[in-house]
Simulated assay, not measured.
Amino acid sequence: MGRKMEWAGKANHLLGLPRKTVIMAVGTFAKAVALVLNSTSVSNADTLLNLVRSRPPGVPLITVSNHMSTLDDPVMWGFKGFPTCNAHLQRWVLAAEDICFKNTVYSYFFRLGKCIPITRGGGIYQEHMSEALELLSNGEWLHTFPQGKVYQEDEPIRRLKWGTASLIARAPITPIVLPIIHQGFEKVMPEKYMFGRRPPVPLWNKDIKIIVGEPIEFDIAKLKQTAISTSRSSSSFSNEGWPPFGPLDEAAQRCLYIDISERIRSVMEKMRVISKKLKV
């Protein structure tokens, strides 16, 4: 518990100077990998830039993407024109606790980098999901990898984890949900490069392709009613003791999160197929 360091993630920690320093350093690294060491092209970048810089006040943004390597974040934000070094505009991101928060030094660094620790397999009601919800309540931008782990194989998007869907449904103001698909990071940081391990530094002379989609609309009130109706006609869900969510019991919540997740997965898969044919 001592390695979660939620205090270090606060904007006013030491007047914000450590955060600005880390964001600027990581942002410079991201720019170097994306633009100097490699070639990065982006389709529909303006949609992302407009939502990051000037979405309606108080409205949160959730970006979702496939997960091709351990460098996806931050390097996917290193493309030309993106405010990668701006600590105020930079995203929050759900980060694997066992990788990014495994010791005190890592925890402090990643907290300054606006990362939230998530225990893979810990469920949607784990401790720091409430922290993510609080950020969304304040109109922040949160990035998630709903696949839950790195997949470098060129194959269809698999069933998504429910954590992102639960945040979309439970946020007081329904977030703008923007899908992103990318290719090439699996070549910059392959999982099995040398002796079955990742390379010690990012590889170079690779082509990175990023495709920004259009926001996915969710009528949460309508989806909740559908989930309640669907759950009453199904008894196939196990019970893990989830707390009620408004009028939704656990079975209805599961129906709701499955519905939202499948809508996101379907859009991401269509984008993945298109991206394979697209020359950005």
Rank of each mutant, 00 (worst) to 15 (best):
G2A: 15
G2F: 15
G2Q: 14
K4F: 15
K4M: 13
K4W: 14
A11S: 15
H13W: 15
L14R: 09
L15T: 12
T21R: 05
T21N: 08
I23Y: 06
M24D: 14
V26W: 09
T28K: 06
F29T: 05
F29A: 05
L35C: 10
V36T: 10
V36P: 03
L37F: 15
L37P: 04
L37A: 07
N38K: 00
S39N: 11
S41W: 13
T47C: 07
L48H: 14
L51T: 11
V52I: 13
V52C: 05
R53K: 15
S54Y: 12
S54L: 10
P57R: 03
G58N: 09
L61M: 02
I62F: 13
T63Q: 01
M68L: 14
M68G: 06
S69N: 02
S69Y: 07
T70M: 11
P74L: 02
V75N: 03
W77D: 09
G78N: 05
F79D: 05
K80D: 15
G81P: 07
F82E: 04
P83A: 00
P83F: 01
T84D: 09
C85Q: 08
A87T: 06
L89Q: 00
Q90S: 15
V93C: 14
A96F: 04
D98L: 01
D98T: 04
I99S: 03
F101S: 00
N103Q: 01
N103K: 00
Y106S: 09
S107H: 04
F110S: 01
F110L: 03
F110T: 03
G113R: 01
C115W: 05
P117G: 02
R120S: 12
G122Y: 09
G122N: 01
G123K: 00
Q126I: 09
H128V: 05
H128M: 03
L133R: 07
S137D: 12
S137A: 12
N138E: 15
G139S: 01
W141A: 11
W141T: 09
L142R: 04
T144E: 06
T144F: 02
F145D: 06
P146N: 04
P146G: 04
G148Q: 03
Q152W: 08
E155Y: 01
E155P: 00
I157N: 07
I157M: 12
L160K: 06
A165R: 00
L167V: 08
L167K: 02
A171I: 06
A171E: 02
I173Q: 15
I176A: 09
I176V: 15
P179D: 09
P179W: 11
P179G: 03
Q183T: 10
G184F: 13
F185H: 11
K187I: 08
P190F: 09
P199V: 04
K206Q: 13
D207L: 10
D207T: 13
I210A: 00
G213I: 11
I216E: 08
I220R: 04
L223K: 03
K224F: 10
I228S: 05
S233P: 01
S235A: 10
S236N: 12
N239Q: 11
G241T: 07
G241A: 09
G241E: 10
P244S: 02
P247C: 05
L248P: 01
E250Y: 07
A251S: 11
A252C: 02
Y257S: 00
I258Y: 14
I260Q: 06
E262I: 04
E262M: 06
M268Q: 06
E269H: 08
K270N: 07
V273R: 06
S275K: 06
